[in-house]
Design a protein around this nucleic acid. Structure first.
Lengths: 208, 208
DNA sequence: CCATACTGATCGAACGTTCAGTCAGATAGA
DNA sequence: TCTATCTGACTGAACGTTCGATCAGTATGG
């Protein structure tokens, strides 16, 4: 649980250090146990300093959520000239890596916990709505490109993208809140067969 | 946010009243704002009384989670002699009702928030693993019945069930943590088309 | 010398929890 | 039937702790 995602491995500014400390504290203690004191301990500085950089805990946590979503968004691959099906797989992999390292488990758990706050905090839900929208736009792009290229059938790209996004969200949640990690691998396999049978244009190779 | 699901509308025992109060407090204040004081206020009795019935907050909340999952599980329809496809739809509807009433929104939000706790509390994740397993068993039953009846193709029922369950989980999460309710309706539509194109045996009527 | 980074002491509020004690009703011995 | 005993539901005041937040003041680099 001590590993750090690459995007905050080498913080350069003080604020980035605080974001990193917040992340570590969140992974270790969970959202319910996320206190200023514990963030300060991960930070290695006094908690007063946190108030020097942020007005209050609320602002810090909101900034942290925004930081996490932006960094995650920027980790989405931007391959424009590949096979549409491979590009689709790459997008799914970005959210749902096939093997769940301790590092990525911590990240996903943090995201799931933050997302749950959106149920009662409109500012959180706005952030996640925006994030979901951005990811879905990427999916739509890939699917529409695939349709134009003739690789995919002429489906409603918007609807398919929302479906894929929803399944990915479910797999992210389940893989850190259920007993084991089956959900994610099954979701990836199932999405693949879904793509094969619903999305792919011709030469159906359904073997299962 | 003041509505109550039918299964705890008329509490008969004191403990049921406490479960109801806990539910109402959770809906109103969220998990982060769920205090003994607020449960007592919804309860209409003193908070000391809560400690008369439960050792501590932890035990109360764990009992509440178990209560919620059991009641939810018992709300799953048990129709044995219908069309497999309709039975499948009924199962999905039980978790993901087509129109999200204020009552059901509160319930779903509560479930999503509780589930997020499982990321850092093994006791929670065990409960949810059990709950997911039970729901998935229902799905497997229906799918296997459908295969035997010749309505469905000879798919891997276990895998399809896990896929459907994961998508449902994602839709539940998204519909209360994103801006709008599109996720749920899209998921239902997409599951339907998935069933049509992947599960259904013959006479494919793909029109979209 | 001035701004920025930073600290330790400290505060009031809110939290979970405890406890002594009240009250209504059931039980039962004389 | 009167009275003593017991029980379980219930309360209000209080405890110790922890939280977020404040502030006066120190160090430090330009």
């Amino acid at each position: 649980m001590g590993e750090t995602p690459p995007f905050l491995a080498n913080p350069e500014t003080t604020r980035e250090s605080i974001m990193r400390a917040t992340y570590l504290a969140l992974c270790e203690h969970g959202y319910a146990g996320l206190t200023i004191q514990r963030i300060a301990e991960s930070f290695g500085k006094s908690k007063s300093l946190l108030y020097h950089h942020y007005d209050d805990k609320d602002e810090l946590l909101l900034a942290f959520l925004q930081f996490m979503l932006e960094e995650h968004e920027s980790s989405v691959p931007e391959t424009a000239d590949d096979d549409p099906r491979e590009r689709l797989d790459a997008l799914v992999d970005a959210m749902l890596p096939p093997e769940l390292s301790a590092e990525h488990r911590g990240f996903t758990a943090a995201m799931v916990e933050l997302r749950a706050q959106a149920a009662h905090d409109e500012r959180y839900s706005e952030q996640f709505a925006e994030h979901d929208r951005a990811f879905q736009d990427h999916l739509v792009d890939v699917i529409e490109d695939g349709i134009e290229a003739g690789t995919f059938r002429d489906v409603d790209a918007e609807r398919v993208a929302e479906f894929v996004g929803t399944t990915v969200a479910g797999a992210m949640t389940r893989r850190v809140t259920g007993g084991d990690d089956r959900a994610a691998t099954t979701a990836r396999d199932a999405l693949e067969s879904y793509v094969e049978q619903v999305l792919l244009a011709d030469d159906t190779g359904a073997d299962t």
